[in-house]
């Protein structure tokens, strides 16, 4: 496998290729990436890991969004994509929505953080979301989320935060404990002690800044151990002072 830097307009491969990423254009120049990032060429497939890309919702994605407005029959929710998503009130109420009896702000207010599934993407400007457990996995938190720490990253960084076969996320869960959850639109939820959240925050900042580095998981492992030790030391000192 060959890793090359992809820059818009600069040809990265000439000759035949079968599986090509949709962000790569083909023309007389050969295969040309349209975004900045790192391209992986192996055999006849070309894959592009973009450095930044906007989240494009897909049906069935678990996302976390913020309520930003009321519609006559539901809520507008910002899920970090191009446009706001729409959450129908009937989904939350579990019955037919009657504007004369039901008050929307009794359920979700502006500013509330909500866990959702994408139920339909009609066009780019038309996204429907639901709070019903469509996939019936029961491990996702749906509805209003409280007492969570939230970190927002670009959705293109998520593969690196999860790692190969989930190696990175396993490591983080093992070391930090608590409730750690990743939404597909780039939101990371964490419930646990504040010190451990600060460690997580720094680790996520490192992973997003060093997306294309090799040997990141081992590096993060060492770093977490160091940071947790420092935290423990601080606690001991405090107890000693008292």
């Amino acid at each position: 496998m060959k890793r090359v830097i992809a820059l818009p307009g600069v040809s990265i491969h000439k000759g035949p290729a079968q599986k090509v990423d949709e962000k790569i254009i083909r023309d007389a120049r050969g295969y040309v990436p349209s975004l900045v990032g790192v391209a992986q060429i192996s055999g006849k497939s070309i894959d592009l890991i973009p450095y930044k890309d906007i989240y494009r919702p897909v049906k069935g994605d678990y996302v976390v969004g913020v309520v930003v407005g009321y519609a006559p029959n539901g809520w507008f929710i910002d899920i970090g994509s191009f446009v706001k998503a729409f959450l129908p009130a009937a989904d939350v109420l579990n019955k037919r929505f009657d504007p004369r009896k039901d008050e929307l702000s009794r359920y979700y207010k502006i500013g509330d953080v909500v866990g959702l599934y994408v139920s339909e993407v009609r066009r780019l400007g038309n996204i429907l979301v639901t709070v019903k457990d469509v996939k019936k996995t029961k491990d996702k938190r749906l509805g209003k989320l409280t007492d969570y720490y939230i970190i927002k990253v670009w959705s293109t960084k998520l593969p690196r935060i999860i790692g190969k076969k989930g190696s990175m996320i396993k490591l983080l869960k093992e070391k930090l404990g608590g409730d750690l959850l990743i939404a597909q639109n780039g939101v990371i939820l964490y419930k646990g002690p504040y010190e451990k959240f600060m460690v997580l925050n720094k680790i996520i900042a490192l992973i997003t800044a060093k997306t294309f580095a090799t040997g990141l998981t081992e590096y993060v492992n060492d770093l977490i151990n160091k940071m947790l030790e420092v935290n423990l030391d601080k606690k001991d000192e405090k107890e000693g002072d008292d």
């Binding site: 818009p8 040309v32 930044k52």
Partner: peptide, 9 residues
């Protein structure tokens, strides 16, 4: 290019 907007060149 830095904003991640696809460009031909």
């Amino acid at each position: 290019a830095d904003a991640g907007i696809p460009m031909r060149d």
